[in-house]
């Protein structure tokens, strides 16, 4: 379980634009770096991130080896209704992690 920091307001007014910030602890091994013994370290990165808002995808990102370790992704969305935000990160070596947060819209 990678450590994750998610920053978003607990409540918002209907129609308000809110900013969501996510930070996940993960190496980003490019797949090109030689190790001390000369062999190339295999790629190990997060490849995909998606945010579902009440099961509807509102934001997604494809990540490539140039992305830094511990990637920070920030995006905005319109607070339409109360519900659940699900954040899913997937990557090499079968990495997959989902975090959920609730949003109350008044």
């Amino acid at each position: 379980m990678a450590r994750v920091l998610i920053n978003l307001p607990r409540t918002a007014r209907r129609g308000e634009v809110i900013e969501i910030r996510t930070l996940i602890q993960h190496v980003m091994e490019t797949g090109y770096r030689p190790r001390a013994d000369g062999s190339v370290a295999p790629r190990d990165i997060i490849t995909h991130f998606a945010c579902l808002y009440n099961n509807e995808e509102v934001f997604a990102a494809e990540l490539a080896p140039a992305i830094a370790a511990n990637p920070f992704l920030s995006f905005s969305l319109v607070a339409a209704e109360s519900g659940i935000l699900a954040f899913t990160w997937t990557g090499d070596n079968g990495f997959e992690q989902t975090e959920t947060r609730s949003l109350t819209v008044t």
Partner: peptide, 17 residues
């Protein structure tokens, strides 16, 4: 800005740990 924002500072991942 990365240092100032706790939500963007990767060091905060270690703080949470």
């Amino acid at each position: 800005a990365m240092q100032r924002e706790d939500s963007a500072n990767p060091g905060m991942l270690w703080v949470e740990e």
